[in-house]
């Protein structure tokens, strides 16, 4: 029963990886990483049940809690780059 959803999740991870490698813009890659993160949370939850170890859900919980920090860092990174853009041009 869990195999169907595990399979769908892994295929989608492969699709997200393709999007991350193809690009074209950096934001597509950030989007792909973020999407892969959500898929990882779901995949870890499903695998925890697949292997009969529901007490290992802590891992999925850790990802669900802190995975989005990276996207905030990207936002901050581009905000800073935009702020110093006029000075950066030599």
């Amino acid at each position: 029963m869990y195999y169907v959803v595990t399979f769908a999740l892994i295929i989608t991870m492969a699709l997200a990886l393709t999007r991350a490698i193809l690009g074209p813009s950096v934001y597509d890659r950030v989007l792909a990483v973020n999407m892969l993160g959500t898929k990882t949370v779901l995949l870890l939850s499903v695998i925890a049940f697949l292997m009969g170890r529901p007490d290992f859900l802590d891992l999925a919980l850790a990802y669900a809690l802190i995975n989005f920090i990276g996207v905030f860092a990207v936002l901050e990174f581009f905000r800073n780059r935009a702020a110093k853009q006029p000075e950066e041009k030599p």
Binding site: L61, A64, N67, F68, A82
Partner: peptide, 24 residues
């Protein structure tokens, strides 16, 4: 808890990403 946090963080991350893309 995982469901609640995913539903909170997913759209927020999308919002932050869209802001970053618009900003650039």
């Amino acid at each position: 808890a995982i469901l609640v946090f995913l539903l909170l963080t997913g759209p927020t991350a999308s919002n932050a990403l869209a802001s970053a893309a618009l900003l650039a």
